[in-house]
Amino acid sequence: MSEQFSVYVPKLINKQEDFVHGHRACQGCGLALAVRLILKAAGKNTIVVSPTGCLEIISTPYPQSAWNLPWVHVAFENAAAVAGGIEGAFKALRAKNKKDNKKINIIAIGGDGGTSDIGLQALSGAFERGHDFLYVCLDNEAYMNTGIQRSSSTPFGASTTTSPSGAVSMGQITWKKNMAAIAAAHNIPYVATACPSYPFDLMEKVQTALKTQGPKYIHCLVQCPTGWGCATDLIIRLGSLAVETGIFPLYEVINGKYKLNMDFPKLRPVTDYLKFQSRFRHLKPADIAIIQKRVEQEWQALKQKVECFKKTGVK
């Protein structure tokens, strides 16, 4: 556990539960945990938009809903557009004095498929238009809702139902799409990565984002025991291991400036993370070596970006 908990954490955390129990997520679902924490950070004046995916299915079987906040689902590929429509409407209604000026947070929360694949166009459009909203991608690294099919966010080497490992296959053969970098390339004011294993970090980022004007993006790794093939009680550890191995670094890009939130003098070997998950079980040492090398390269590249901004002080 590298995040320091001060004793009596509940004092520091909003007690209100806006993602209520009774939701149908699997035992030990990191996605459900992340949503719970995000809503704690966002507070009451918040509207949430979700695309189709695990989150929508586990939370809203008619006539029940796990959402204590206003929430809307339309389809799989358009959460960012729907959120943009809400934001645009509020703006117009305020300009016409049809709505008070009280700030309402608009948060779209989608899966990796709904974000980096089918929803990427709508997201890019919403970023480019500059809607004042926060988009959170809950990245469980596959299409979990439909039965663990690969997405462009599935990591290299992972076995999924559509990128299965086999006699002549090592599972997913493409590298995980870097959504945070894609978001940052839109020159939006705030981009961050997060993971519910670090609840304070995640909540702080949500709050920072909501204080920032314009489009914001948080890419949140969420553990999925069902899709990853790991023990349900291990998920918090796994999130930390993803960070400590450098597989999923925690950083922010504030107005284009990179900031590493958690640095390590030495990264843990990737096997520390991979070995707890059956989706990586088939990997041979040579495959793991490829992953190790790539992780180190990307870690160095990230650190260079951070250093470069430190030196030049580019704002």
């Binding site: 129990h21 009774g22 149908r24 008619y62 809903s65 204590n68």
Partner: peptide
């Protein structure tokens, strides 16, 4: 339009 009451999932005991 099939709107649902906020927080009503609590009725479902997991």
């Amino acid at each position: 339009g099939l709107t649902t009451k906020a927080g009503s999932a609590q009725a479902y005991k997991t």
